[in-house]
Amino acid sequence: MHDMVVAFSKSWGLFYLVALAVGVVIYAYWPANRARFTRAKNSILDKDDRPWS
């Protein structure tokens, strides 16, 4: 039982790491997201004097 848990921990962690990294990179570079990100990063620079209604 314990050996199984450990083996699972050791192997699965790595697999999970790779999967997560790939997922995040795909998301970040997905072409359709480009416009949104550009908007987001510029959004903090203006129109923040009051809440929007």
């Binding site: 039982m1 314990h2 848990v5 450990v6 699972f8 921990s9 699965w12 962690g13």
Partner: peptide
């Protein structure tokens, strides 16, 4: 993953 096995382990 790191902590749980410490409790099952003898």
């Amino acid at each position: 993953v790191e902590i749980a096995p410490l409790f099952t382990i003898k």
